[in-house]
Write a protein that binds this DNA or RNA. Sequence first.
DNA 1: CTTCAATTTCAGTTATTTCAGAAATGAAGA
DNA 2: TCTTCATTTCTGAAATAACTGAAATTGAAG
Lengths: 178, 178
Amino acid sequence: MKDNKPLSPVEQRFILHWGEMGTQWGINRTVAQIHALLYITPKPLDAEAISSILNVARSNVSTSLKELQSWGILRRVNQLGDKRDYFESVQDVWELFRLITNERKKREIDPTLSILRSCIVEANQDDQTSPQTEERLRNLAEFLEVTTSWYDTVSKWPTKSIRRMLTMGDKIRRRVGL
Amino acid sequence: MKDNKPLSPVEQRFILHWGEMGTQWGINRTVAQIHALLYITPKPLDAEAISSILNVARSNVSTSLKELQSWGILRRVNQLGDKRDYFESVQDVWELFRLITNERKKREIDPTLSILRSCIVEANQDDQTSPQTEERLRNLAEFLEVTTSWYDTVSKWPTKSIRRMLTMGDKIRRRVGL
DNA sequence: CTTCAATTTCAGTTATTTCAGAAATGAAGA
DNA sequence: TCTTCATTTCTGAAATAACTGAAATTGAAG
């Protein structure tokens, strides 16, 4: 356990806050903290280092890293003559956002949509379920369809184009005739 | 405790799924279930009814309703000659999304941004915090600024315009010159 | 095949969140 | 003021999630 440079107050503050933020969005605090640490650290870190910097058990780090990898937001780096795995975070925030959103869509929104669709079909036959209820399910499904298919389209654009569109703000409205 | 029409299988399925969905996004399962119930139910329900339909303690319903009201997504309805409060959900899904997103932005993103900004200032002075770290904080802050200010703009458009833009998909790119 | 460092898995513990029931508060009418 | 009914607050119990340390596994080098 070589001793790592301890975190500066700024780093600490950011990591702690990011951890809290994680919990609010259904992400384990430690997972979010590890990600924050890897995001701001200039060089890749190995699990042991993460463990000692953040004061969490080595095993916990292992699990959390696996979780982060399942989101596709870490790169594993190896150094010659060192069998340890070093990790660094995807740096581009736009890419980070894309990866996380794609994954949440796949894990959460898509299944929700398919449940909604089957509920709608069933509700339509079923006479226990009122037409109003069915309509509300339809509205919800339609909303998710429109928004996610837009996301699918736009997320494939190059970041530059996305950024340019976003920074156009209200201007886009006229140009597009809304 | 008058007995309410029990939930149809479809209704049950939707409510259970919505509850699960909630937990994944950091929202209490019961809170999400109550919201789902109110969203699909054609007429307003009182706390006692919710409690018996979903089989949760009356007190729990009370807390959850307060939570939902703090998001601004419930309307309280009163009936003449009945002192109970009845609740119904905002029906328009676009409006629902707007309300929830506005609130999450206010509660989570805005504070994050202000922490980030102060971290950046401090990092700049501080010689414990590396320039790379500072830059990464900047990138993150910039991303949040661009995306949220775009959201602020667009969320004020009438729903029709938003929907039209979203359904344009890739067409918007050429029209806007990206 | 053996060794050893690194990683992962697992069982038990700890911490956090959720929840029910009791007590307190509030609001309206007698 | 007292009574009654609805709602909210509070507290401890139960359920869930997170975490640790030890043991098991993996995999590379000799």
